[in-house]
């Protein structure tokens, strides 16, 4: 911490800038993530607000995806990963021993970088989550959940006549919307999206962005993106990560028009990244 002007305290000060007044859904305090001995996330504190889209931006390898995966404990699957600090969902510590990780992941859903539908039918893809959690009370109820989820993901009109076909037979953009439908079928409170458009063409990307807009009112959405225009388009808040630090966090309009930290400014003006 020699360079106090650009890291450390000044960043935390930047992170505490007044944001629009929305209730925090998730709170992270002093979170470190280690891969073995390597520290991938260094002392990150952040509030994820309800009914908002929060974008994590930053250059490759800055830890934004790692931090995202810490939010629903997907890092648990990596043997060497270790998380310290506190992450709360509605005031409940998600890393406490009392937290059921299966339930947590149902409440904090996830959409991945590469569309990864199950190699099963479209219907089964969406119905899988509700089925394992016992959310549907019968065939008719399940049909309804599937239809509602697909409609919300904007995919219903395209697939309603071929629900029995394999989910992997859809186009890339449709697959990603299917994955979103699958995530919202279990009725989550937070949706984490890890670069959901990086494998898609511009038209499919536009559809996903539109969908994020529509979903915003219902869920807290966190989206990791490399694409700064995308962050500016879809998010209300933006967090800039660099080398495992949260450099700056604030309203998207503020971050893009008036960045406080030099590193943020350099990044969004394309000086590096």
């Amino acid at each position: 911490m020699t360079d106090m002007s650009d890291t450390g305290m000044s960043d935390i000060a930047a992170g505490q800038r007044v944001l629009n007044e929305a209730a925090p859904k998730m709170i992270a305090r002093d979170v470190d993530v280690f891969y073995g001995d390597k520290k991938a996330i260094d002392n990150v504190s952040i509030d994820i607000a309800l009914e908002n889209v929060t974008a994590f931006i930053g250059p490759s390898g800055c830890g934004k995806s790692t931090f995202l995966r810490a939010l629903n404990r997907m890092n648990d699957t990596i043997a060497s990963a270790r998380v310290t600090g506190k992450i709360e969902l509605d005031g409940e510590d998600i890393y406490s021993s009392g937290m059921d990780v299966v339930q947590l992941r149902a409440r904090v859903g996830m959409v991945f970088q590469k569309p990864n539908p199950f190699p099963k039918s479209i219907y089964e893809n969406v119905a899988y989550g509700p089925r394992i959690h016992g959310l549907a009370s019968g065939k008719a109820d399940m049909d309804q959940i599937v239809e509602k989820s697909l409609k919300r993901a904007g995919l219903w009109e395209e697939v309603k006549d071929r629900l029995a076909e394999s989910g992997t037979a859809l186009s890339g953009g449709q697959q990603q919307r299917l994955c979103i439908a699958r995530a919202i079928a279990v009725d989550p409170e937070v949706i984490l999206m890890d670069e959901p458009c990086s494998a898609l063409d511009p038209i499919a990307t536009a559809k996903i962005e539109e969908l994020i807009h529509e979903l915003r009112g219902r869920y807290a959405i966190v989206i990791v993106t490399h694409n700064m225009q995308q962050a500016a388009r879809v998010s209300q808040r933006t967090a800039f990560f660099h080398l495992g630090n949260l450099v700056e966090y604030g309203d998207t309009s503020e971050i893009f028009t008036n960045p406080r930290a030099t590193r943020t400014k350099d990044y969004i003006t394309g000086r590096y990244g």
Binding site: T77, R105, G109, Y128, I132, A183
Partner: peptide, 26 residues
Amino acid sequence: PPSIRDAALGVGASRVQVVFHHVLPL
């Protein structure tokens, strides 16, 4: 592919469910 495991874990499947519903059939 690990993405299938991620997908199942991501909707809240337990390890056993991931194995018996997805990994083993594939």
